[in-house]
């Protein structure tokens, strides 16, 4: 199946969703450069992991549904998987950073909860 088989509305919708999602992910990555401290920087990639991911997966769902002529919803599984795993990675990373900062006695170490 070639991309040319898509109807016009689907092509525009897929392109718009993919571009918006990629733009949001890129802004999140730029946050890795622009934000000054580690704890601020951890917030940045969540942009790509939430809205950016959702929009690109939506583009993929629209694309393959329009190309195959039936609903293709398997990309929802990637979304579900990312939604469940991102909190685990970020909580573990935040805790590791907090532990290291506290044991080093850094001035910007987080207070006790």
């Amino acid at each position: 199946m070639s991309p040319g088989d898509l109807p016009d509305w689907a092509a525009w919708l897929v392109s718009a969703l993919a571009l918006a999602g990629a733009g949001i992910s890129l802004v999140g990555a730029v946050g890795l450069i622009r934000l000054k401290t580690f704890y601020e920087r951890v917030h940045a990639p969540t942009l790509g992991a939430t809205l950016g991911m959702a929009m690109i997966l939506a583009a993929s769902i629209v694309y393959f549904s329009a190309a195959d002529g039936r609903p293709v919803l398997r990309d929802l599984l990637i979304g579900l998987f990312l939604t469940v795993t991102t909190p685990i990675t970020l909580i573990l990373l935040g805790r590791a950073a907090a532990y290291r900062d506290r044991s080093d006695g850094n001035a910007n170490a987080p207070p006790d909860p």
Partner: peptide, 11 residues
């Protein structure tokens, strides 16, 4: 908390 950017669960 994690899915809303701007808040991060530390501990």
């Amino acid at each position: 908390v994690t899915a809303t950017p701007g808040t991060l669960w530390i501990q």
